[in-house]
Amino acid sequence: MNKKSLTLFIMMILCIQLYAADVNSIIEKYDFNSTFDSSVAESTIIIKDSLGTSTQKVKAYSRKNGDTLIEITEGPDQGQKVLRLDSSIFLYYPDANQIIRLQGSALKDSFMGSDFSYEDLSGDNSIINNYDATLVNEDETTYTIKLEAKSRKQPYQKQLLTIDKETFVATKATLMSASGKELRKMESSDIRKVGNRYVAYKVEMYDLLKKQGSTTMIIDSLNIDESLDPYLFTTDNLSW
């Protein structure tokens, strides 16, 4: 290898490392916005489908390891609770005799008939831990990042995120299967600063496997990094 080739090779390696560092720093900032030590969010979920529009209010508690408790506080399904612990979902229905445990593919089921799955609303949201990222495009205001899951466990094996350069919040996301089939599409807006993070207060989700309809989730209130009683994330708490 002559001197010229060696210089070119070193420059290439440096470029790749710089590029990787750049993508990782984008993802780190994105993750910083979307993952919290704990959070308590009250939201309104508006489901539009062939039947018309239905509205339910939910209160969601979550902590960093992905454990999530969602209570339906208003609407036809009021009183129902969903608890996500590791890879299991526990459902509490006021008229049932027992708590129902869902596992495996059931986690991909629709939450309350919405375009969100149980998994979309719970679990570990961290991108850096679960996906390999590649920067595929950059314009004046956004980065477009392609994600590929590190393990088969992830509900979406591929994702395409459009991340706002200023806030590092994903304004658009296309969630795909391993074969690249588009499963869901998400659009975020109403980005507000909460403490030192940016959070999208309005998220619209489209289940692309359904013929029509969409679900809009509007955050009514959000408290992050509050200390939460660990008892909240137990099955005993569900039936109370």
Binding site: S54, D77, Q98, M112, G113
Partner: peptide, 11 residues
Amino acid sequence: KTAIGGSNALG
């Protein structure tokens, strides 16, 4: 499943 798209359980 329920008629409004959600789910419900009964003992």
